[in-house]
Design a protein around this nucleic acid. Structure first.
Length: 720
DNA sequence: CTAGGGTTAG
């Protein structure tokens, strides 16, 4: 025993010299540690006697058992602090941090393991604040942190964004030599800098660590991947292989996400191969990332194959599949998979629900979307901003901006994206004033608008004929040095162009560095509306330089020539289109009746099973509309034909067929139809009157926006 | 007796 004391003394004084020099810690620290060494070496027999009993208490999670043992310890004359760390550890393992803390506070001397246990437990159980407070207490009590303390406390610093304190403790790790020699400390540091968003610092730490292992390198790869430095992530992965460190499921899980972001299917498939070879292709986390990678690269079939191989997909796996399918325009399949997920009793989260909702809104599936709204409510995500923006998007795209607004108003937290979604809902439904009001509120709340906000606001002005407001806003955005894209310019060109300010619109395009097809075509379409053949021909030449034989351009020109009676030019355009083997997109409309979608094509009177009843209803509707003053507007027939044939062709437009069908099926409430093209003037006039005839609201979503027809007028104010 | 990394997102 004496020798032990001496050995301990020598060792401690040696350490003390080093510490003194580097940390300035004082003698009392040395004495306290030394006394602890003596007492713990005395008490070994005691703790050993109680160890099996404590283990039993832990197994049974019995805190009363622990208190029993504590009482016995006291009775046998041993002060708690001698075996306190065991009791603290056992209490923590029973989940009783309160009692552990009570024990801890009653100990006049605490072994470092006791400190570490409490700190680690607090941080692991989302009580980082308490963990850090303990850590500070430890320092002020002159207990020097060790590798265990540091590797847990760094996580708390990143949780609480305590960057300054983190740097001080990093310094301590450097002084103690733990940064380079202990992998736990090293990877905790790398992870911390990653969470602070400082991948450069993380890399510097990694470089200093003596012998790198898979966890350390993976922590860095995760950082690159999450910060969008995807090329760096792949590079780190490659150098890891070169150094002979074997990746594991965590490594694959994150590097594959970067491959997906890079859309680098070559390296993605190579890594898939490595995964199979090393057997990590059966780990759920890496399988999920593999699935995501294939979906990001638009290889839907490969991703479905991966999914089929997964035995027990979890919430994240399903969510990844559903959102990826929606992203790849496979909405129907996404909704089917969502149904399967629910049948498998896998709980959805707000990501799952917002993806499923996006699937519905892309297809304007109102009823299906309402069902999912029910699920949102059931799982308590009604006020969640992710699920909420899915709902706002759904109701916006189904033409119900008031319902969208009531969702928006109940959210418990709003951010730029919730505002954007709501402003866009107003914009596409033509509620410009409401959109602008919301935009102002967003600014007052101090939220920084992004490119989507700017586009939504301009679109709102455009769709409501608020040309002056739109121009003013656009000027202010330009002055603010907001980054304006071609989409923003296209919106302005459309706004000015449709208002007949064609020269101004053309001037605006000259500002754009790289004017694209859409921009010119927008202007061309404005020329079409205002029958400006001279300008249109000029624009047409410009477009055909960028995109020879552009289909949309030829169609627009042909329509313009038709509208101005230049039939020989029309024939010229048509033959050119024929030569290019171009066919006009057929005009189509959809209507959902009893959760079933029916499709109608212009001029197609016979393919629907109920075409007889539909035509009968249509004739009746046209007759009643005529009684209220409907007259065919033949200016939108772009073919050279007899007047009566023109009328017949107008009567066969797809939206008229769809509405007739909905009326025949006696759809209750609002009739909602969808169109792939813009609604024509004649149909617009007709639907306005029909809404009065049937005393029902008709909402029509065309390729650009919504029209709400009610009691003889339309929400667009005849401006679209 | 105490310690480190991952996958879903409007």
């Amino acid at each position: 025993m004496r020798r032990d004391f001496n050995g301990g003394l020598i060792a401690f004084s040696r350490i003390l010299k080093i510490f003194d020099k580097k940390t300035g810690l004082s003698e009392p620290y040395f004495h306290s540690q030394f006394r602890l060494l003596c007492t713990t070496s005395n008490s070994i027999t005691t703790t050993h006697t109680f160890s099996p009993l404590l283990r039993q208490c832990i197994d049974e999670r019995s805190i009363s058992g622990i208190k029993n043992i504590q009482a016995q310890m006291l009775k046998s004359g041993f002060p708690i602090q001698l075996s306190g760390s065991k009791l603290v550890d056992a209490s923590l393992k029973c989940g009783e941090i309160g009692y552990a803390r009570q024990l801890f506070d009653g100990m006049p001397e605490r072994h470092i393991v006791t400190w570490n246990s409490l700190i680690a437990y607090s941080i692991k159980h989302r009580r980082s604040k308490e963990g850090v407070e303990m850590y500070r207490l430890m320092i002020t009590n002159n207990v020097l942190p060790d590798e265990y303390t540091l590797s847990s406390v760094f996580k708390a610093f990143s949780d609480l964004s305590l960057e300054k304190e983190a740097l001080r403790s990093h310094g301590l790790a450097v002084i103690l030599g733990l940064e380079v020699s202990n992998l736990f400390v090293g990877s905790a540091l790398v992870d911390m800098y990653v969470k602070f968003g400082k991948t450069r610092e993380a890399k510097l730490v990694l470089d200093r660590v003596d012998e790198k292992d898979v966890v350390l390198i993976t922590a860095l790869i995760v950082g690159y991947s999450q910060k969008g430095q995807d090329a760096e992530a792949v590079k780190a992965f490659q150098s890891m292989l070169a150094e002979g460190v074997q990746p594991n499921e965590y490594t694959y899980a994150s590097v594959l996400i970067s491959c997906g972001n890079l859309k680098d299917i070559g390296i993605g498939k190579l890594i898939h191969g490595l995964m199979i070879k090393s057997g990590f292709d059966s780990a759920l986390g890496s399988q999920t990332s593999l699935l995501t990678m294939y979906l990001r690269c638009s290889l839907v079939d490969d991703s479905l194959w991966v999914f089929k191989c997964i035995e027990y997909p979890n919430q994240v796996t399903w969510t990844s599949l559903i959102s990826g399918l929606v992203e790849n325009s496979r909405e129907e399949m996404a909704l089917t998979e969502f149904g399967k997920m629910m049948r498998d009793s896998i709980k959805p989260n707000s990501f799952t629900l917002s993806s499923a909702l996006r699937g519905c809104s892309n297809l304007a599936m109102f009823e299906e979307g309402r069902q999912i709204h029910g699920i949102v409510t059931k799982y308590g995500f009604d006020r969640d901003k992710y699920a909420g923006s899915g709902l706002i998007d759904l109701y916006g795209k189904c033409g119900c901006s008031d319902m969208a607004r009531s969702v928006f108003d109940t959210l418990n937290e709003v951010d730029v994206i919730s505002f954007n979604t709501m402003i866009y809902s107003y914009a596409q439904n033509g509620f410009g004033r409401e959109a602008l009001e919301l935009f102002e509120r967003m600014i007052n709340l101090g939220l920084q608008p992004n490119d989507v906000t700017v586009l939504s606001v301009l679109l709102a002005c455009n769709n409501s004929g608020l040309v002056e407001e739109g121009c003013e806003l656009f000027d202010s955005f330009r002055k603010d040095k907001t980054v304006l894209t071609n989409d923003h310019y296209a919106c302005m060109v459309d706004m000015l162009g449709r208002a007949g300010r064609l020269e101004e619109a053309e001037m605006l395009i000259t500002e754009v560095v790289n004017p694209d097809l859409v921009l010119w075509r927008t202007l061309l379409s404005a020329c079409n509306i205002h029958r400006n053949v001279e300008m249109a021909e000029r624009i047409k030449r410009k477009i055909l330089e960028i995109a020879p034989g552009d289909e949309g351009t030829l169609i627009l020109m042909s329509n313009l020539y038709a509208a101005t009676g230049k039939w020989n030019k029309v024939i010229e355009m048509k033959s050119e289109m024929k030569e290019m083997k171009l066919k006009k997109n057929p005009a189509m409309s959809w209507v959902e009746v009893d959760r079933e979608t029916h499709t109608f094509m212009a001029g197609d009177l016979f393919s629907h099973p109920n075409s007889g009843q539909i035509l009968e209803t249509l004739e009746e509707l046209i007759k009643k509309a005529k009684d209220l003053g409907y007259v065919e507007d033949k200016s939108c027939v772009f073919q050279d034909m007899e007047e009566s044939a023109k009328e017949r062709s107008l009567h066969q437009h797809s939206e008229k067929l769809a509405i007739a069908f909905a009326v025949w099926r006696n759809v209750c409430g609002t009739i909602r139809i969808l169109k792939n093209l813009r609604v024509c003037v004649d149909c617009h006039n007709w639907i306005k009157i029909v809404s009065r005839v049937i005393k029902r609201e008709i909402i029509c979503r065309d390729s650009k926006r919504f029209h709400h027809f009610r009691d003889g007028s339309c929400s667009c104010g005849d401006y679209w």
